[in-house]
Amino acid sequence: MYDFEYHKPGAIDDAVKALGADAEAKALAGGMTFIPVLKQRLAKPSAVVDLAGLGLTGIRREGNALVIKAMTTHREVAMSSEVASAIPALAELASNIGDRQVRYRGTIGGSLANNDPSACYPSAVLALGATIVTSRRRIAAADYFQGMFTTALEPDELITEVSFPIPEKAAYAKFPNPASRYAMVGVFVAKTAAGARVAVTGAGNDGVFRHAAMEAALDQSFTADALKDVTTPESLMNGDIHAGTAYRAHLVGVMARRAVMACK
């Protein structure tokens, strides 16, 4: 990797300042994507601002919401009894991210800030209609995701926590890429107060998206059968050596039905 300055501030304001003062500075929130990128010399930040000292870890219940602080690791989410009782689908999702090592280091905030099109968390955030709380504002999930690796975050804006409204029931079904084990197709299905929600990650050519046709069908009847004839346009799909657009479109349907059947 290239040389860089390393900062580990103890307060959010200091972290925001450090990032604001230097356009080439980058935040480190676990580093499960960022460190490999640095090692391969694919990024050349002037400074790395490590968010591990900000005290941004923890999970709490707040009324009808589950709030997870940004630097909470995947393992903490997967093992949390709070998460398991409020949104078991979220614990299940976190327990299948990466491998054991990644789950001990990777964080929910890091994943959402990176918005990898094949990351798992964006589908949960979008389907559950979560709110991204940052160092300066609250962003609705619908406004937050803006395409592959693109979000509403400003360069010096940090996610502090994510607030998930607790659904009636939900489930996540993931078809992993055989090599990377990222989501080749991941579908998060939820029955919420606002109706049925279906968010798809891994498959779309513009990142995570909501599947309106499936939501409409599930609003009619929240059953796997209701999705039987709902198709997914190939034109929205990503294609690569592991899965072409037709296969991905097909898998969206299969994973959605499996998620509906697994809902609890």
Partner: peptide, 22 residues
């Protein structure tokens, strides 16, 4: 699982463990 795939210009598409399935 395993397959080394080149494109027609000679670039190795399965050039890392992210794409080459061990």
């Amino acid at each position: 699982l395993e397959h080394a795939i080149y494109d027609e210009t000679g670039q190795l598409l399965s050039g890392s463990l992210m794409d080459y399935t061990m």
